[in-house]
Design a protein around this nucleic acid. Structure first.
Length: 611
RNA sequence: GGGCACGUAGCUCAGCUAGGAUUAGAGCGUCGGACUUCUAAUCCGACGGCCGUGGGUUCAAAUCCCACCGUGCUCGCCA
């Protein structure tokens, strides 16, 4: 609701400044949203008089006074009580109408509150994207939760999204794995614990390679790598036996993934893994286009690469601003070496991840999307810029690319390494948090039956993990600290869940229906009531900010703020046995519950009725 | 070395996109308080800050610009 007032004030201000003939009329959004306080600043305020002072050659306070007059002359703004000036600021104070309208809006719109109508942007949203034959680890956990919540935010902001799990199920690593599997031939173990077994094989290969390297047997290392490459080449050229084996790996991984995603409450619309684009010939099409049109050049040993120059990367994500050099402009013989080589075809003719990513773009463009979003770690930043540049060269010039990058997670003992066995799985984390939660449940309430206690522990575990993974700004690196990641106290999911549960419980305990907000608008609200109502009014601005940043972190911060404000309200104010404000506070609590539910839907944090 | 990120309380982080009101906010930890009350997984108080350093822009800088320092990532015919 605050955004409505903000937009109204900006519109009026622009009109006034235009009438005055001020250049600052074009200034964007100079409205601050302050904390609600009884005295002093208005909830909305603007320091624009300071900006105008030099242009108009008058003191800010005078300008502010004139501006305030001009606002008043335009007639009352619904929701604004008084407009005052103080030290050059213009303060807009809200009135009770605003509070009532906010409550009405939330109760009427429910989960539609804060949602904007479709922008017409259809986007392919890629996230999670684990590799088969390995379990999801805490890195995937961050990606998956961040991606899922961001996807929900964008959908609420009007995007038409297709969520795609771009599974890493192709590449030479599977050549190695197939080779190791054939060597070991322990189908019994595979049937029993497929992923654990494949992980072991993967690590066995890694150890093998490291040993050879360390003992300086370079020829043997090459031999080992060649074998893997040969297996992969055979797989890619359609070897039926290897393909059948690969399918078993893939299927086993899929069921393991499904179990984890189920626990996390994450869904995808499509699961087009990398293999899809190879099997459906999109990679060969890319290869032909690139070679036939002279976009890729052949290297001495028979590979094909697309040369990428530094200035190709400038604003490459934006179709309006991107400006890649086409090969017609380049004399490759003259400035060879001055570019990064984006490999389209390796010397043995097989595809690389770049080929498959280009093929993926080709496919997605044909599907008619306006934008392709990639939730992938920041360690692949440069690669993605190059990928987009290569795609532009191939003629995909109209599509918006967005690499939503995020900081790495490492462990106290160093960066994660699947090969070295330094990894913590997503399931491990969920289990540990659930265990913590379970013991807290028991400490707090011994009357609960087992099943209910388990449900609460599951809900708290999910709330903790989801909150933890979106609360930090996405660009921040993190060191995974088990203690901290599994903590249920402080600025965490359970803190927010607890506030929501308390609010819900008040409604549950009330034996009367919730009134129409306008019918009880004359009941008095104190500062704590208003503080809470103002938080409710802020929510649409928060979603707006999440979209601008492609980051759900502001929403998590908002939930903390809302929970903190509610807990204070809860402590200071009685609702059900309030003397004068019972019905109006009940409305306020009902709106708060609605607000929690709406935000929980987006963040995927479970709403618990007891905890 | 080039590129990209990050640097705010002992620790983990908000605030920076779009600069504003001589009070820079949370949590953890430490110390001290509050349950005959709609759930104490809560609340209140205390302690704790040259907002990495140095310049610049501005009436106004944690916020914008430049340089430097520190940390991480990256610069594979791996993904």
């Amino acid at each position: 609701m605050l955004q409505v007032l903000r937009d109204h004030i900006i519109e009026d201000m622009t009109t006034i400044l235009e009438e005055w003939g001020c250049a600052a009329a074009t200034t964007t959004d100079p409205i601050e949203i302050n904390e609600y306080t009884d005295a002093g600043k208005g909830l909305l305020a603007t320091p624009i008089a300071f900006q105008l002072a030099s242009e108009l050659g008058r003191p800010p306070a005078d300008i502010a006074a004139d501006l305030a007059d001009a606002f008043r002359d335009r007639g009352p703004i619904e929701g604004i009580d008084t407009i005052e000036t103080a030290g050059g600021y213009i303060n807009f104070h809200i009135d009770e109408t605003f509070t009532t309208q906010t409550l009405e809006r939330i109760l009427d719109e429910g989960s539609e509150y804060g949602v904007v109508e479709g922008t017409g942007t259809s986007a392919l949203f890629e996230f999670s994207s684990p590799n088969i034959a390995k379990p999801l680890h805490i890195g995937h956990l961050r990606n998956t939760v961040l991606g899922d919540v961001l996807g929900n935010v964008l959908a609420a902001r009007g995007y038409d999204l297709v969520r795609d799990n771009h599974i890493g199920d192709w590449g030479v690593q599977f050549g190695h794995l197939l080779y190791e599997f054939e060597q070991a031939e322990d189908t019994e173990r595979f049937e029993a614990e497929p992923i654990d077994y494949l992980l072991e094989l993967y690590q066995r290969y890694g150890r093998h390679e490291t040993e050879l390297e360390e003992s300086g047997r370079e020829a043997d290392v090459e031999q080992l790598r060649d074998t893997g490459r040969e297996y992969f080449a055979a797989l890619e050229s359609g070897d039926a036996e290897l393909r059948a084996l690969w399918e078993r790996f893939s299927d086993a991984s899929r069921s393991r993934f499904d179990a984890t995603y189920d626990r996390l409450g994450v869904d995808f619309d499509t699961w087009h893994g990398e293999s899809f684009y190879v099997t459906e010939s999109w990679t060969s099409q890319i290869r032909e286009t690139a070679i036939d049109n002279g976009i890729a050049i052949e290297t001495d040993d028979g590979a094909y690469v697309v040369p990428i120059y530094d200035d190709d990367l400038t604003n490459v994500e934006d179709p309006e601003q991107a400006d890649v050099r086409t090969d017609a402009d380049i004399d490759l013989d003259e400035d060879d070496g001055d570019y990064e080589a984006f490999v389209i075809t390796k010397r043995d003719g097989t595809t690389t991840y770049g080929t498959r990513d280009l093929a993926t773009i080709a496919y997605r463009v044909e599907q008619g999307y306006d934008e392709l979003l990639y939730v992938v770690g920041s360690e692949q930043r440069e690669y993605f810029q190059q990928l987009f540049a290569a795609a532009r060269k191939l003629g995909y010039t109209d599509i918006q690319f967005t690499h939503v990058d995020y900081g790495l997670i490492d462990l106290p003992e160093g960066s994660m390494s699947t090969r070295a066995g330094r990894l913590i799985t997503a399931e491990d984390v969920l289990d540990r948090v659930r265990e913590n939660a379970r013991s807290v449940v028991e400490e707090n309430d011994l009357t609960l039956d087992e099943e209910t206690a388990d449900e609460i522990a599951d809900g708290v575990a999910l709330g903790t993990v989801r909150f933890e993974n979106i609360a930090k700004r996405r660009t921040k690196n993190t060191t995974f600290d088990t203690e901290q990641a599994t903590s249920l106290e402080g600025d965490t999911g359970p803190y927010v869940q607890y506030a929501a549960t308390r609010a819900w419980n008040i409604l549950h305990e009330a034996d009367t229906d919730v009134s129409e907000p306008s019918a009880v608008a004359d009941q008095p609200f104190n500062e704590f009531d208003h503080q809470l109502a103002v938080r409710l009014a802020r929510y649409p601005l928060v979603l707006e900010r999440c979209e601008e940043r492609y980051d759900p972190a502001p929403l998590a911060q908002y939930l903390l703020d809302l929970a903190r404000t509610f807990n204070k309200f809860y402590h200071e104010n009685r609702v059900l046995d309030a003397e004068q404000s019972r019905e109006r506070r009940l409305v306020l609590v009902a709106a708060t519950v609605e607000m929690f539910e709406t935000a929980f839907e987006i963040t995927g944090i479970p709403m618990l009725k007891r905890m």
